[in-house]
Design a protein around this nucleic acid. Sequence first.
RNA 1: GCUCCCGUAGUGUAGUGGCCAAUCAUGAAGCCCUCUCGAGGCUUCGACUCGGGUUCAAAUCCCGACGGGAGCACCA
Length: 492
Amino acid sequence: MAESIDPNLLKKTKCERKHVLPDLPGAVEGKVVMRMAPGPSGPLHIGHTRVSILNDEYVKRYKGKYINRLEDTNPEKIDPEAYKMIPEDLKWLGVHVDETVIQSDRFEIYYDIARQLIDLGKAYVCTCPAEPWRQMKEAGKECPHHSQTREEAHELFDRMLSHGFGEEEAVLVVKTDLKHPNPAVRDFVGLRIVDSVPHPRTGDRYTVYPMMNLSVAVDDHLLGLTHVIRGKDHLNNTLRQEYIFNYFGWKKPWYHHYGLVHIPEAILKTSTIHKGIRSGEYSGWDDVRLGTVRAMAKRGIQADAIRNYWLDVGMKDVDIEFSWDNLYAFNKQIIDPVADRYFFVWDPECLEIVGVDRLESRSPLHPDHPERGTRDHSLTAPIRVLMTREDLEGFRERGTVRLKDLCNLRWEGGKGVYTGSDHNVLREGVKISHWAPADGVEAEVFMPDGSVRKGVAESIPASETGKVVQFERFGFVRIDSTSPRVRAYFTQ
RNA sequence: GCUCCCGUAGUGUAGUGGCCAAUCAUGAAGCCCUCUCGAGGCUUCGACUCGGGUUCAAAUCCCGACGGGAGCACCA
């Protein structure tokens, strides 16, 4: 029995213990319908990835349906590019979308529901200015329109639809309970008018726009959502939306609200990024200083690292602090075993090697996987290599150095005198440095803080383009191009 | 001001009345290994917000305080 066990199974692997997401109440395999509902104001950022991945995990677990619903009901905050970028980002994240719904295709549906709400006596058209209306609500008092008849409401609503009102002149309000102790839940606006800005998809054809709480409730019902997972910031919205479900007697989905995430040191606001891109401050949505999904990708953060991070965090309703350290740790787990190693010398200084005519080096692409091959260099007199300024300084002070995979040197008159190639000198306390051939390629590494580290690298094959490699003693980077110079983005 | 949610190490997480002098990861420090300041191995540091109850027994249940977050938009 014991001898039949594969020894590999006994090997202790790191991070064995994974937190498993709890089962969803009432989830039936094949029947689960979940969604993500981003506003198309820009591409996805790291904050969006939690909701997309949690929903995706459950849909996969229950073999359900994943709906990507683009909530484009505020024409002022739409970036037409986002209709394309969001699906790209989801695909990169490994989120499988079964169905895409765009709310601006569904105006007539929302109008129809609005009419039904009027029929039920649960909605009225209010022509009060916004501020007094708010104050009355705060005081728990009805506005003069609250008690209008259904006929009046229908007439006014028709007038809204036929452009009989301008922007801010009339709204359709959904009644809840003006005496509700929670002021956030009292009567809310269901549809409003926007005619100053055309909609990127529907132009000026529709000027009566549903507000989120109406369109979300309607679509969650009509699309057959069974489980809704989203952030705690929607807690009060859920309370409002439930009024609509109750008025129509619709079956409510199971709701779960996870805690808010504070993401430190991240630039996420689409308006800020938009401005930065226009002014030339940022190179684009994938500028590595940004917190967008595409910036993560460009830096070499793996989609599965992001997924594993959120699975580890789970669904708790505690507010949390996003940890870049932890994300990087998950990322390193994935990239370290596959990233080839190369030398990159930052702040390069030239050193001449004397006392030998020819040097050969052979370094493994990966120290733990010699079968992947080697990177070889042949240097002939006059031999010149590059070292970082700091390493060269250390060499001068100590008088000795080991150049990794190449040779040992003694400092003499500003040059390196060849003293052999046996790496066992390391046991005697000789320090090791990496190096690059003097005719190596120029390289620049773009750091997430916007700075650039310049130097020289050994030549890197074009096949590494797009992959993450490790610049030894520097860090992991994603190679963007290999010629005429190496261009890379710092991963971690 | 009102309402709601939450409170385990620096960070994330396990824990749902006794097996908790509290798990795992991350982080930091140190050692071993290694021709990288990577990876791997080992060790150490570090937490149940506080105060009252209930109970033979509480991180776990109840109450209060304190602390954090969100909402009270004709944004999503």
